[in-house]
Write a protein that binds this DNA or RNA. Structure first.
Lengths: 387, 387
DNA sequence: TTGAAAGCGCTAACAG
DNA sequence: CTGTTAGCGCTTTCAA
């Protein structure tokens, strides 16, 4: 007959049903239920995952003891702990993250909203975020707003429903209303805006040196002899566009060049728009001799179209764009850019967020600006100049 | 004095504490607790989110009634339902996804493991997945294995802990062991492998026409007069590399060209490796006159290096690569590729997974092959030929 | 048509 | 050192 694993007595033992196909016993004397630990760990073909209860019954201990052992608490007998940990391994127990989070009120998960994962800039930002998340033990849920305001709002709702500990967001091109973000911050959920930010919101944010970058690029074009500099910008309301245009204007002013609104074009900065804008520029009575694109990809598109028309780059028309990536490097001629180190943006953004999460009560949102770097390439380097 | 909102009587009413700063009442006669609905919805500055209990107390109904109303169940009075829905809106109640999932045993979430989000191919696959997920109401958790086997295993564990309903995976370059996937399928969690698959696993999978694509590309190079065709492949064990090399060999054989192992180079298909491989090729006694790269990015790198050495493309050395993207289109000369429609891969993969999720009991894993398309560009089109 | 109560899997406070 | 118990927020019987 079976011995009780608790009190060691044989007399009180009765069969008490089955646990996952294994005979379960009950000791009337010490009123303990238990299942004998079989030597060959059962195949666990059952669909419902092993829970802490299974582990507890398996060894005839209580669930709190199991919880303590598995969470490395101090007040537990080393032997019990070892046995439980071994049992957990044998049974292939995995904690249920949902239950843990529900109980703890914190998911250790960060929501990231990205307007466009296909864009190399955001892909790199994401890589930076992932990197830090891995090292700090945070989970990431990535939502893709696809440059749509409506989806962005849905994303925030999804993330709130998932009870993420904090949110990293870069707004869609369409976004001009920010109530969805206010709602989140009012609930005390930390938010960090990156790249495309709205500075009126009471959140931390991290941006590039949009002004300085634009200023430097345009000043560089001027230094190469350009006097009629066109700019392909994005949506009028987008803060980064505004700031970059300011940088553009400041550079012109500094060098005594008049600002001509014909040279300032707003677009949707979608892929494929570059050619059309180039056509507009070269159709002007006094076409530009230099073009600054607020998004590098559009600069490439314009260069491609210009090349096809036989326009000489950079001598007849020089190009510069915001943001570096492989296409800017590999295109012929390679594009002069202001590199804004996207991976670093991601890393810093998530660090700021985690700082905020760990210190919710007395945290004051702040802004950070990442230093960029002017990279001069052949798209703007005219004859007679040298690198 | 206050009237009971349930029985309408005044006599039994006593104060019964506070709910979120609002006076709460108890009617002794009908033993109901309730809070008066204030006209100005309170600011809810409190950090802990509104729960179903708050909504219930707010109206003096039970939580099950609230649950019914919010889940659009039939057995509920229309007026009660309307009132509850209004109250939920007023209080800005959002269901707790964790609690729902814990209760239901299903999260309506799909885990996606991606080796490298920075790669345009995977970015496009992801876009396809996202698209379908949005339309079908599934949530997505994206995990980035960063081409590391160790992280890939961690990812699977994270996703299991999150109790995702299914997993989409493309393996890291390092992955040659697949026990972590077996573990998942044994637990009855549907898995679909995409692109980099292991066909010995009992899961659905979706791949390109790797054989045919390689065959077509190489045959095209042969048609352009190439007779010594080098191939830059990836890790030896990777199934797609094996298959593509088979396609390469088959094309040579069909045209009576001897296979020369000097022309078959295995690499890590990391960015930046192209130049080194090119140097190897042109250092051979009998250097190739055509190169087929298993990853398009490497082909571009090799072309860049070749251009810098003054090698004429395609006349002295022609190039072709697997997979299309913007760089292949914009590089000078543009690269001949086999386009494998990554977005479609993503869409189909997630559809297969959802099909499996909805039909767990009698679902037989199957494989799908997405038709690709040969795109001939200048990198391989020799003089005398025309498009 | 509604409410009470059990339970999803887990943690933690409180008793022994 | 270990067990009992009360939740976390929700859905879902079962009763009324």
């Amino acid at each position: 007959m079976q011995k009780c694993i608790k009190c060691g007595k044989v007399d009180g033992i009765i069969r008490a049903g089955f646990l996952r196909g294994q005979q379960r016993y009950h000791c009337k004397l010490c009123s303990h239920f238990f299942v004998l630990k079989s030597n060959q760990p059962q195949p666990t073909k059952s669909n419902n995952p092993i829970t802490i209860v299974d582990v507890a019954n398996f060894l005839g201990v209580s669930i709190s003891t199991v919880s303590r052992a598995l969470n490395n608490k101090s007040d537990i007998n080393q032997k019990t702990k070892d046995a439980i940990i071994q049992a957990a391994i044998d049974l292939d127990y995995k904690p249920n993250f949902l239950a843990q989070s529900l109980n703890k009120g914190s998911t250790h998960t960060i929501g990231v909203i990205v307007p466009d994962v296909g864009h190399p800039f955001f892909a790199s930002v994401l890589a930076g975020i992932q990197q830090v998340a891995n090292n700090t033990g945070y989970r990431i849920i990535v939502c893709h707003s696809n440059e749509s305001y409506r989806i962005e709002v849905l994303n925030t709702e999804t993330l709130m429903a998932c009870r993420v500990d904090g949110i990293l967001i870069s707004h869609s091109k369409e976004t001009t209303e920010f109530d969805h973000i206010k709602k989140i911050t009012e609930k005390g959920i930390p938010v960090v805006q990156y790249d495309r930010v709205n500075s009126e919101l009471n959140t931390s944010n991290i941006i590039h040196q949009d002004f300085k970058g634009a200023f430097n690029l345009v000043e560089h074009l001027i230094s190469q002899g350009c006097r009629r500099i066109g700019v392909m910008s994005g949506p009028k309301e987008m803060q980064i566009c505004k700031t970059r245009i300011e940088g553009y204007k400041a550079a012109l002013q500094k060098h005594g060049i008049e600002i001509n609104n014909d040279y300032i074009v707003h677009s949707n900065i979608s892929y494929g728009e570059g050619e059309q804008i180039l056509n507009y520029f070269i159709g002007l009575e006094n076409p530009p001799d230099g073009i600054f694109a607020i998004v590098n990809r559009n600069a490439i598109e314009m260069m491609k179209a210009a090349k096809e028309k036989g326009i000489k780059i950079p001598d007849e028309l020089a190009f510069a764009g915001f943001g570096d990536d492989i296409l800017a490097q590999y295109f012929e001629p390679p594009l002069t850019v202001y590199n804004h180190f996207p991976t670093r943006i991601g890393e810093i953004a998530i660090r700021m967020l985690i700082e905020n999460i760990n210190n919710k009560s007395n945290f004051n949102p702040y802004s950070k600006i990442v230093e960029g770097e002017l990279i001069i390439r052949k798209s703007s380097l005219k004859k007679g100049s040298c690198l």
